[in-house]
Nucleic acid binder design. Structure first.
Lengths: 213, 213
DNA sequence: AGATGAGGTTAACGCCCATTAACCCGGATG
DNA sequence: CATCCGGGTTAATGGGCGTTAACCTCATCT
């Protein structure tokens, strides 16, 4: 047996997964070859097959991994339960924002390449996603009891789209830094949720009497 | 010379583009073969080359087309200029929602496959996108003068993510119908923009005292 | 020291797929 | 009537790429 459990820093597998995620995000699953992935970690081509059954296996592990971490994180935050539902929602939002800002490539791959998975894996990922959504829906409905469940669900989907928008950003510089960005996204998400209920807004009901030019 | 300008209903080219968009959205650019695209319009394989220079050309025309239509629509709505900036923003939002709901596949392809384009086309698309964003930024800043320009830009990006979230929706039934969905998205977008400025929200400041059950 | 196995390497195989070649047909043109 | 030519067809070509085969080389264990 061996006792050396810290080969370097991160195990080779994780290093590969990280680079694969980045490449998949940049050019799509079909767009990147195994040789490139190998090159990205210093080995070349088929050497990857010592660590993964194939290219598909890497994608599967990535997607299942993300989904599990997201759900686990969400459950944790709900379980820790703040004093108020509002606090829980805040925690959920912050958690998701951290994820979106830190693991940008994963987010991208997450909702781009789901259908390249084998039936079994895809089902698993979808199930995890669904549970994560329902987690949010419950909390949102606790904070905003007005709207129907389907409205709440659609709103949650939409807010995910909002929070996951960071990958689509242009070159940095025209945009706020990380902390400011996190702040902003948080406000935007809360603002959106706050508007789920309410009369058919016509734009007047939000712009707080700003005269403008 | 010919005078027959209405071959059937939509020209063959457009029919091909439509199917190609659907397929690209479903399985990604690299994921679908020319034979499939051909089959989708009743001809098979290389017959497509009578209409397009190649697979890439289809993608290019799709992406440039979307971007141009979005920008043109946006400019039109701004030019028609409602009485108030608020009305213009409403119009922009509605326009984008119509687009997101009606041309779902295009939206998907839009921000998935941009990098598969030839340098020239990609530059053009990016430029159109940028102009579209700036159009929104101006209007948003007119309605909400508080926040900085970079904040406004980030908010616009985020709201695009929100509005474009429809493609990611699960199977229909768990979600509102089209008109209700449009209504909801509109409210969410306004809610988000309304929250761009404002003190560091903690969740309490939004739940508008709805007593509920 | 010798065995072993983890982790690489390069070469070869085979499939998939975009593109091209070569050929075909029916209708408008003149 | 002969001629184009737009719009198809199938067969061939060629490159890219995932995967497998065969071989190599250190650490580590006995």
């Amino acid at each position: 047996m061996s006792n050396a459990q810290a080969p370097d820093r991160t195990s080779r597998r994780e290093q590969i997964l990280k680079e694969a995620a980045r490449l998949f995000a940049e050019r799509g699953f079909h767009g990147v070859g195994v040789d490139e992935i190998g090159a990205a970690v210093g080995i070349s081509g088929p050497g990857l097959y010592r660590h993964f059954a194939g290219k598909d296996a890497m994608l599967a592990e990535l997607l299942v991994g993300i989904s599990e971490r997201l759900l686990a994180g969400g459950r944790m935050r709900v379980a820790e339960g703040g004093e108020s539902p509002e606090a829980v929602l805040d925690a959920l939002i912050d958690g998701h924002i951290d994820f979106a800002l830190d693991d940008r490539p994963l987010i991208t791959v997450h909702d781009r390449e789901l259908d390249r998975l084998r039936e079994a894996d895809r089902k698993r990922v979808r199930q995890l996603q669904r549970q994560y959504v329902e987690l949010w829906v419950e909390v949102v409905r606790r904070v905003h009891p007005g709207p129907s469940e389907s409205q709440a669900r659609a709103a949650v989907h939409a807010v995910f789209g909002l929070l996951n928008s960071t990958p689509h950003l242009g070159r940095p510089g025209a945009l706020p830094g990380r902390t400011e960005m996190a702040e902003l996204l948080h406000r935007l998400a809360l603002g959106a949720f706050g508007a789920v209920a309410g009369e058919p807004v016509t734009g007047e009901s939000v712009g707080a009497g700003v005269p403008g030019a």
